[in-house]
């Protein structure tokens, strides 16, 4: 909250829940212009839910999300659509439309939102494909690509409109180490080349430490700490230390409950 003028995204006192189960509690988060913020946390920490809320795909139970000082849940529809054209989202599995070729997928935002002629669209698409090391894969169907290629194609589609904000869900999940390092480099290059603000959701420490300007650590639906890489590394919070050292969660075993769980249903 220190430099309000450069804050691009603000999340204020956000609560979110699925039915009766509350997954996010009182989240406060700021993303500054031009920075790479990594939202990190183990599985079930609520990081995907936080992303969904920031994208406006899910309505929060309480709190607000401001992008460009507009509350995305109360702003009118045409403003929201305009806002979305300045945002790119790379989904975990690429989320390419399975009925279209890779090229058509990447061209889709341009075809839908611009009046550019087909030649320009093709050139822009090839440009982005080159950037993602996917040159020549234009005419393949998404089902013919590997997981890493799908992710990169999804990224190409996310940046085709040169967005100001890029969201990236789990860039390295399910990838081999080499490909995952390549993707990290790509993210850094993108920021350098296009001056994007990038929000990355991941559970990979290495990748987070490589790319992040700041990291927000999520644990059981709460932000434990937000800070630079060094601040996270020097954090004294037990949960963060455990996450960094990859030590398993310490579960307090209650003898009686444990016994009753094991013997449940037995006579």
């Amino acid at each position: 909250m220190s430099s309000l003028d450069s804050a691009l995204i603000e999340v204020n006192q956000l609560d979110a829940s699925y039915g009766d189960r509350q997954v996010l509690k009182d989240i406060n988060l700021t993303v500054n212009k031009g920075e790479i913020l990594v939202i990190m946390g183990g599985s079930g920490s609520g990081k995907s839910t936080l992303l969904k809320n920031m994208l406006g795909l899910m309505k929060p139970a309480a709190g607000e999300i401001l992008i460009n000082s507009m509350d995305i849940n109360s702003v009118n529809k045409s403003e929201l659509l305009k806002l979305r054209r300045t945002m790119g989202v790379a989904f975990q599995g690429g989320a390419l439309l399975s009925s279209m070729s890779v090229g058509d997928n990447i061209k889709l935002p341009l075809r839908q939102h611009t009046d550019l002629d087909e030649n320009t669209i093709s050139i822009m698409t090839r440009l982005k494909l080159e950037l993602m090391n996917l040159a020549g894969f234009e005419d393949l169907m998404p089902s013919e690509l590997s997981g890493g290629m799908l992710k990169r194609a999804g990224l190409a589609r996310a940046v085709i409109m040169d967005p100001k904000i890029l969201f990236f869900d789990e860039p390295s999940a399910g990838l081999d180490p080499v490909t995952s390092v390549e993707l990290d480099q790509l993210i850094l290059e993108l920021r350098k080349a296009m001056n994007m603000t990038i929000i990355v959701v991941t559970h990979e420490l290495e990748s987070a430490f490589t790319i992040a300007d700041r990291i927000a650590v999520l644990f059981d639906g709460e932000v434990v700490i937000t800070g630079t890489v060094d601040e996270i590394k020097n954090c004294t919070d037990e949960r963060v230390i455990n996450l960094i050292n990859r030590s398993p969660r310490k579960v307090q075993i209650d003898g009686e409950k444990y016994l009753s769980r094991l013997t449940k249903g037995a006579k």
């Binding site: 969904k52 994208l55 406006g56 795909l57 659509l81 305009k82 979305r84 054209r85 945002m87 790119g88 989202v89 989904f91 975990q92 599995g93 989320a95 390419l96 439309l97 399975s98 009925s99 889709l108 935002p109 839908q112 939102h113 999804g154 589609r157 969201f167």
Partner: peptide, 20 residues
């Protein structure tokens, strides 16, 4: 089945985010 798989693969989320 096709639409359900599209939903599972977040293709509708992707469309919404692309303002389509």
């Amino acid at each position: 089945a096709e639409i359900a798989i599209m939903r599972n693969e977040q293709q509708f989320d992707a469309l919404t985010c692309m303002a389509v």
